[in-house]
Amino acid sequence: MVLKSFVLTIAIMVLVTSMSYASNSIPLQDFCVAINDPNNSHVSMNGKFCKNPKDVTADDFFISGLNIAANTSNQFGSVITAVYVDSLPGLNTLGLAFSRIDYGPYGLNPPHINPRASEILVVHEGTLYVGFVLSNSGPNMKNKLFTKILHPGDVFVFPIGLIHFQFNMGKTRAVAFAGFSSQNPGLIFNANALFGSHPLLNDGILAKAFQVNKKIVDYLQSQSWSDNVRLP
């Protein structure tokens, strides 16, 4: 009986390990250009249909417009120009995405999470104050804040799934470029998700979580919680 249990345990471990590798496997084809038309597709990969390779052109791997500054006159004073698989179909299955971030004077890319990707940021212009907050990872590291002031040419990494932000410290605009380890990194603005959810979260729950009066929560929920993302 003990031997059978041991063999079963080993079998389960092998199965789980093989499944974990399968979920992050290396593509078995050169590319899988995303297409939304299933009638003109070759195969479906990771939620996106693959364009027939015979119909693929260089334009499927090309996009322009990241040289154009975005209008940052919004509530955050920043704009993310996102190059994800939906705007660059050739990214499909490659595990990559990219963005340009424009910041007006004292503009903020507010605290947010990329649930499916780590991010590497390089500053092109201006001075940014950036940082991220750890999870509950031990008694001496719980919610520890890591911050840095970045100048042109500086690079900073935000680990996957952690709350992070960027703030333009200067009176002039700033520009940064970011790469992601997923074709669809996802984006959750913390304030938007909590105070601008659909339908709204119970204000009593939020009041207790933030240890504030419900009137403050009601005020925050009454605000306009838009994002700062656009496609090129």
Results as ranks from 00 to 15, higher is better:
74 N>D: 00
98 F>N: 00
47 G>H: 04
58 A>M: 07
71 N>E: 07
75 Q>W: 02
99 S>Y: 02
82 A>H: 12
70 A>E: 08
92 N>T: 12
82 A>W: 00
95 G>P: 13
52 N>A: 08
73 S>A: 10
94 L>K: 14
85 V>M: 08
65 G>Q: 03
93 T>M: 10
79 V>W: 07
62 F>Y: 12
52 N>T: 08
82 A>R: 12
77 G>V: 08
70 A>L: 02
55 D>S: 10
93 T>A: 09
68 I>H: 03
71 N>Q: 04
54 K>W: 05
77 G>I: 01
60 D>T: 05
98 F>R: 04
93 T>V: 15
77 G>A: 08
49 F>H: 14
47 G>R: 02
49 F>E: 05
59 D>Y: 08
80 I>E: 09
68 I>W: 00
45 M>P: 03
55 D>I: 06
56 V>Q: 04
67 N>D: 15
61 F>M: 04
55 D>Y: 06
57 T>S: 14
93 T>F: 11
66 L>G: 05
68 I>M: 03
80 I>Q: 11
46 N>I: 11
71 N>L: 02
63 I>Y: 01
70 A>D: 03
50 C>I: 02
49 F>V: 05
57 T>A: 04
85 V>G: 09
72 T>D: 03
94 L>P: 04
58 A>K: 09
68 I>P: 02
66 L>C: 02
97 A>S: 15
51 K>T: 04
60 D>L: 09
62 F>T: 14
84 Y>T: 14
75 Q>R: 14
48 K>H: 15
59 D>E: 13
45 M>R: 15
81 T>S: 15
74 N>Y: 08
50 C>S: 05
49 F>I: 03
60 D>E: 03
85 V>S: 09
80 I>H: 06
87 S>L: 01
86 D>R: 08
67 N>W: 02
89 P>K: 11
45 M>G: 01
67 N>L: 01
74 N>S: 05
62 F>C: 06
96 L>Q: 13
75 Q>K: 15
90 G>E: 14
52 N>I: 12
47 G>W: 09
95 G>V: 12
54 K>R: 10
74 N>F: 07
51 K>Y: 04
48 K>E: 09
99 S>V: 00
49 F>Q: 02
70 A>R: 07
71 N>W: 01
53 P>S: 07
94 L>D: 00
94 L>H: 10
67 N>H: 11
95 G>R: 12
66 L>H: 02
90 G>S: 12
81 T>L: 05
86 D>S: 15
71 N>H: 07
97 A>E: 06
64 S>E: 07
84 Y>L: 12
46 N>T: 09
51 K>N: 06
65 G>C: 07
56 V>L: 03
76 F>A: 08
